[in-house]
Amino acid sequence: MIAKLKSAYGSGIEPLTYLGQNYMVVDRTLIPEILQVLRNEEQFDYCVDLTAAHYPNREKQFDIIWVLYSFARNERIRVKTLITESETLPTSVPIWPTTNWLEREVFDMFGIKFDGHPDMKRILLPDGWKGHPLRKDYGILQQDNEWVQINLGIESGQ
């Protein structure tokens, strides 16, 4: 399967494997297309997880990772793409409805927007919160002091 995808997309895909788990690093430009192909042709019909990681020292700071599973093939793969801070990604909700809340969580925690998402707003943190906690430049004890002051009426940090 990897060979077929590689022949179709050439340098945009780099298949790798670590500890027996296959994953591929794809170019940002290929993104909705390759996910569509994986779902429709390669039968990866279950999107297990969508998550991100922040590498502040790299030029392309964010890693977005889709973990996909195919019932028919009993196989799990990961698709990884790298984007910069200001880039956005097209939404995968038309491909897998699971990603509705998963993308909202990635937006909430990292600040990465997904174009075309039906409901792009924060999910775990309160709506008016400023800042994206899972980024590496957000401190472990840091809070949105303004929000806490206004809504909870206490000095933050207690």
Binding site: V48, D49, T51, A53, H54, V67, P97, T98, N100, W101
Partner: peptide
């Protein structure tokens, strides 16, 4: 860990 992600079943089921 550099990044530790938990994929919670209840979160996805609640959707």
């Amino acid at each position: 860990p550099y990044r530790l992600r938990v994929r919670p079943p209840s979160f996805v089921n609640l959707q």
